[in-house]
Design a protein around this nucleic acid. Structure first.
Lengths: 287, 287
DNA sequence: CTCGGGTCTGTAGTCAAACTACACAGACTC
DNA sequence: GAGTCTGTGTAGTTTGACTACAGACCCGAG
């Protein structure tokens, strides 16, 4: 059974732990406790650190689905590069500033990595096509998701369609009530179950607009309402207070959408953007 | 000279290229063209692919500052895990949706990695202390940086100080004109040279507020004005139309600040946040 | 309680790959 | 034009990954 690179390695080891032999578990513990040491060491050194023989280390690697120790070491090095998954490096009040920063960055990066792996190209493609064919786009998002909506507004020029971002739920609902076929309604909600947002999405869809949802839960009610659902898989933030990583992942998704739509619009669109950029640079200096 | 892991490896190779010997450059090209192959291969295979002898490959590794081929391979594997830097995987109109998504994510992830590496813990610590000791916080940012300002507003509860985010430049200037000692003025500007923002920052500082700058250019005029400057190093976005990656990096920095400040405020603050969270969850379902 | 089968773990050995010492070839200088 | 120095490949050595095998332990059955 070959190792699936889609699952973070240290997580994979934890999963496999029960099915490993006793001495192999000692190796697993050694790896979990100081992965950096293992990456830098030879098989003999790892064997000694774990208190077992070399072939046991070898067996540990093959049990995990690798061809050998070398391959395992390479995979371990790669998983370390993304930073330790949040589950393995909980944030505590005793952390120094630089530890804290490293942990938050690690967490964000490995979350983005996960989002990338679980991303559905078909849904993305459908969303891009919908925007390319739309007469206008309206973005709805409340609270934290409102930040994403504002980001879409910043990128409106890339999308190349009139793009409105009503700021509060009443304005968003009014826009949904006035929605027409040919319009795209981009609805952002991490939970996918905020009732206000659901009403807005439902109304927009009933009026014939194409509803594109960006949500963290693809089984949510919002996903059921939307014509196209883009799932944003991240690590859960149970111990954190604001869903920052999911917000950042959504921003990257919006970036993908904007880039794709802009590219598909062709050269004339690109030229207009370049011109806009120049004028903006001049404006920045003057005002 | 040991290799500095702070610089992405493939970039480092490109930098070192002129100082390499001709045959070593062939190795460098082979590595740049198909890094994944090199990671999976032995020294002999790489030597053959590059059309040189094994010791030349070895010399190439030592020239880059590594102890040997093994160490180089490990480092290469790690840099691959972060995705290829944008310079090596330019976005083109012919890309499929999934290629495009991968490239945008790769670019974002490796940019965040760079930001993390260049982050200055001292500045961050100074910013955290400033916010902890402040009576109130005002956030100023225009255009794309306005999104960051809005994100700070979302996290205001974490900071635990009254937090105002004037939406346009005139309101921001008025707030700066009314600034007093004890207040923190968080100024966000990627370029650090937008004249409006500079005037706002200068006025806030002259009125005695502590000015904390988040900027992409630590040599900018804004950095000179601010009491504390947090530099957000990312890859340059010359071929892209909106500075999305720098915006995302800044968001993560804000997340670090918010998390740190929140933790330092202690248990009572944490309890209030938990209570707020519960009430918000109920509100989401009802409205 | 003892005997047999099966599983687990370490010992010894082999092979391949990384690393090193050296010699030759080409180029540049004096 | 000769000498020296830089650059590159050849041949050899060593180390570490991988493999075959044997001993030890555990469990169940007689």
């Amino acid at each position: 059974m070959p190792f699936d690179p889609g699952v973070p390695l240290l997580e994979h080891i934890a999963t496999m732990l029960p099915s490993l032999r006793p001495s192999e578990r000692q190796v697993a513990n050694t790896v979990s406790e100081d992965a950096a040491f293992v990456v830098a060491s030879t098989m003999a050194a790892v064997a000694e650190a774990a208190g077992v023989s070399e072939p046991t280390v070898m067996r540990f690697c093959t049990s995990l689905g690798f061809d050998g120790f070398q391959q395992f070491k390479l995979a371990l090095a790669q998983s370390l590069a993304l930073g330790l998954p949040s589950t393995l490096s909980a944030i505590s009040a005793e952390d120094s500033v630089s530890e804290l920063a490293t942990k938050v960055f690690d967490h964000t990066i490995s979350s983005l990595d996960r989002t990338r792996r679980y991303l559905d190209a078909v849904s993305l493609g459908a969303a891009i096509d919908a925007i390319l064919g739309a007469t206008s786009m309206t973005v709805a998002g409340l609270g934290a998701s409102g930040v994403i909506a504002l980001d879409v507004e910043q990128k409106a020029v890339l999308f190349g369609v009139p793009c409105s971002v009503p700021s509060d739920s009443h304005q968003q609902f009014m826009a949904a009530a006035l929605a027409e076929p040919g319009q795209v309604f981009l609805v952002v909600s991490n939970t996918g179950s905020t009732s206000t947002i659901l009403q807005i999405a439902r109304r927009a869809r009933d009026n014939g607009a194409t509803v594109v949802a960006i949500t963290g839960d693809e089984t949510s009610e919002l996903a059921g309402i939307a014509d196209v659902t883009i799932a944003v898989k991240t690590f859960e933030d149970t111990d954190r207070d604001t869903p920052t990583v999911s917000r950042i992942a959504s921003l990257v998704i919006v970036d993908v959408l904007a880039t794709a739509v802009s590219l598909r619009r062709g050269a004339a669109h690109a030229a207009r953007l370049a011109s806009m950029k120049e004028q903006l640079a001049a404006f920045r200096r003057l005002t």
